[in-house]
Design a protein around this nucleic acid. Structure first.
Length: 254
DNA sequence: ACCCAGGCCATCT
DNA sequence: AGATGGCCTGGG
């Protein structure tokens, strides 16, 4: 099916460090695995062609791509006088915050700590390859020994994955979805290997708490350089996380 | 060689 | 409470 969609750039989203399993297909198209489905999308300007039918699009992909949110409205909330933020928004005008699977996002961002985007992609791909390319369930991940996990090159994160498989049972992941931000964040941090930053990434990229504001080394340096008094989280209540994504993307692309 | 990469934990003051 | 070192691994 074909659609015209605004504020949406597949390439920017794929490079923005929130998802690590999209497969570039050439010509700006991507193969996207999520929720047990596999979608192919191609884009020319604001024209999109999706491989699925209307029903699957409505049930799965509309929410996944967060198409119910008007990013144009978020962009105009950014202060005009904040030239750095304005530049970041202009640079990443097609970014969106995906609504990804909770379990997959937890595992992915545990792997992200002290790592980099190409390596995270490889770790996730190698992990999925053990299960025929599908993302492992909690039980499947729990069945892997520390040696097997380490053989994937995840290093000291191996026991964190095992801990997560035990801590985040499917019903727990489901429960997280209905918790308010503070409660979800605290619960996430209760798992060994999940700290403040990883928990914020899960809150933002899976639970869609768009006020969550993950601070990594890049954002930390952005704050030091451009926001000496801190980022105005109060002013941008409920959208600070989206603005963070523009800032982060602007930084890593430079 | 060295340092750092979308951190977190344990162990101190 | 806050600061520091160690940790797996790969790339610059």
């Amino acid at each position: 099916m074909k659609l015209i969609l605004r504020d949406f750039d597949l390439g920017q989203i794929e490079r923005s460090g929130q998802c690590f399993r999209w497969q570039p297909m050439g010509g700006g198209g991507y193969g996207i695995p999520a929720f047990g489905r596999f979608l192919t999308v191609s884009q020319t300007g604001d024209e999109f062609e999706f491989s699925c039918g209307e029903e699957e699009f409505r049930e799965i992909w509309f929410d996944y791509f967060d198409l119910g949110t008007d990013y144009g409205k978020i962009k105009v909330r950014a202060a005009k006088r904040d030239k750095y933020l304005q530049a970041a928004i202009a640079h990443g005008a097609g970014l969106r915050i995906l609504r990804q699977d909770v379990w997959e996002t937890i595992v992915t961002f545990i792997l992200s700590q002290n790592s980099n985007i190409p390596r995270i992609r490889k770790n996730v791909a190698d992990l999925c390859a053990l299960f025929g390319g599908a993302f492992p369930t909690q039980a499947q991940l729990a069945s892997l020994g520390e040696q097997t996990l380490r053989s994937l090159g995840v290093g000291y994160r191996a026991p964190y994955l095992t801990a997560a498989a035990a801590y985040f049972a499917p019903e727990v992941c489901e429960a997280l979805r209905s918790m308010p931000y503070a409660e979800a964040h605290a619960y996430l941090c209760g798992c060994k290997g999940v700290g403040v930053k990883v928990a914020d990434c899960v809150c933002l990229f899976a639970l869609h708490h768009t006020g969550a504001f993950p601070v990594d080394t890049h954002v930390k340096s952005i704050l030091a350089q451009h926001y000496p008094d801190g980022f105005p989280l109060q002013k941008y209540k409920n959208c600070a996380g989206i603005l963070q994504q523009y800032l982060f993307f602007y930084d890593i692309m430079k």
